[in-house]
Amino acid sequence: MPAVLDLWKKTSALPLGDRIFSFAFSQKAPYFATIRPRFTVVEPNRAELVIRKRRGVHNHIKTVHAIALCNGLEAAMGALAESTIPRDKRWIPKGMEVAYTAKADSDITCIAETDPEQWTSGDPDLPVRVRGVRADGTVVVEGVIRLWVTPKS
């Protein structure tokens, strides 16, 4: 079992385990700590986290800043990738395309998804579908993060 998925399974069974996991994950890539993600789902082909709407992630109109949203999408994608990738492969992000579709004026759930066959297709270009959803269900950002998946050398 991939280490991130194993850590999620161990910590999420504990009281406040999602917070323990989220803190540990953010230490691996410290920039993620700026949004204080709280992971709620980590499984192969899917990861979700929540960014709380708070002053530290606000823009000038007091909504969640576009770059904070992208940071959340990338963190969700990273957890998904680490929980899904076959042991004989490695990944690196190679691009992100997003559209901002509504104001992010509540907590935002960032979701990353793939299909199982994407990881075994042999095509090194792997698009991860990402979106951010407001508390009322409105999608505020959506797009694709492209990964480059290659065999470990």
Score class of each variant (00 low, 15 high):
S153K: 13
N45F: 06
E74C: 11
K94D: 04
R38W: 09
S22V: 01
I92L: 14
R52G: 10
L49Y: 11
R55F: 15
A76Q: 08
A76N: 09
G143Q: 11
S12T: 05
V141C: 12
T34N: 14
A104M: 01
H60N: 14
A81R: 07
W91Q: 06
D123F: 02
K62D: 15
A24I: 07
R90Q: 15
E82R: 15
V41P: 06
W8D: 01
I67K: 11
I108K: 02
G78F: 00
G143M: 08
T114L: 03
V42L: 09
P15A: 03
C110T: 05
K9W: 01
Y100E: 02
W148S: 13
A33V: 04
C110Y: 05
M96P: 00
E117T: 06
R52M: 07
T11W: 06
P44Y: 07
R46K: 15
A33P: 02
L80N: 05
L80D: 06
K62F: 15
C70P: 04
I67H: 12
V133P: 03
V50H: 07
V64G: 05
T84R: 08
P2S: 09
L14T: 04
G95I: 00
R52S: 14
A13F: 03
T11Y: 03
K28E: 11
Q118W: 00
S22A: 05
D125N: 11
K89V: 01
K28N: 13
L147A: 08
R54V: 11
P127H: 05
E113H: 04
P124I: 01
A76K: 09
I145W: 05
P86F: 06
D105H: 06
I35K: 01
R38Q: 15
P127F: 03
I67Q: 15
E117P: 02
I35F: 07
R46C: 12
L14M: 14
R134Y: 10
E117L: 08
P124V: 00
K152N: 11
K53E: 12
N45M: 08
F39K: 04
R52T: 10
V64A: 09
K152P: 03
T84Q: 08
I35N: 03
R19P: 03
S83D: 04
N59C: 11
M77R: 12
Q27R: 15
F39C: 03
V41W: 09
T40Q: 13
I111S: 06
T114Y: 08
S26C: 04
A75I: 00
R36C: 10
I67Y: 13
A24P: 00
D6K: 10
G122D: 00
